[in-house]
Amino acid sequence: MDNKRKLLIQSLAALVQNADFRGFFSGRVSGAATKKVCVPGLNCYSCPSAVGACPIGSLQSSLSSFSFRVPYYIIGLLIFFGALLGRAVCGFLCPFGLLQDLLHKIPFFKKIKTFKADKYLRFIKYAVLIFGVIILPVFIKLTPVFCKYLCPSGTLAGLLLAFSDTKLFALFGGRFMWKACILGIITLASVIIYRPFCKYLCPLGAFYAPFNKVSLLQIKTDAEKCTNCKACFRACDMCVDPSLHPDSTECIRCGKCISACPEGAIHYSTLLSKGASLQNNKMKTAEVEYEQEEKAGTD
């Protein structure tokens, strides 16, 4: 998939989820009837133009209410999106993902692709999901911990709301300043590192991540065509090697590897045609490992 087409899909998705522009002029959070429906990506309910509810915000609201009830609707909807698309939601449908993509296009003298602690920091998002979205809101009533103390999408929504209704600026206190600092750090980091929020902090990405292995949408690498040149790995901003792990939990299905492959060995596929691919990939992995071992033995 070429970058322009991906950007077009992302922009359309962001527009559909934020279609009520009246809020920017009236200074009101959109009251669209569709706000009862959760959107697939991270898009704050409080954004003046938001026509849907953020699934992470809704999940915390339900879990932190005084009368605890299992939020079947939200969990069911998240499982549905995950089972259908996996982390393609992050790659194509999340407005905050689009924002980070655009920020990363800003030229900077040194872009960092990976660093020593990178792979360990990626586990933080699972902790954010478990503690910030599930456990703490259950025990601290009426406190959606992730929204209240961390979510940069909510901070951005708050800023947009305040620009639409300037008297809200007077309400910004210490907690908002803390959240504004987080948003600032993520904004700056997005210029240097590709999607730092998605990689390290996003609880929604953490929820969708395991679905990459079982979702209907898959990326398939044809082992017959793959020459192990690693062009796909070099092209991947999420540092995934699709020739070996096409169902990696870190893959956001952006399709850069598909464009980068000189042999046309990588393509979008469905779970139904995944069996042969996985088997082929396992064989390929074993083949590569054998070659490496053999090389080491010769050396």
Partner: peptide, 11 residues
């Protein structure tokens, strides 16, 4: 309502 809730303070 809650102080951290945008739609609450907005209305």
């Amino acid at each position: 309502w809650e102080t951290w809730c945008g739609p609450c303070v907005n209305e």
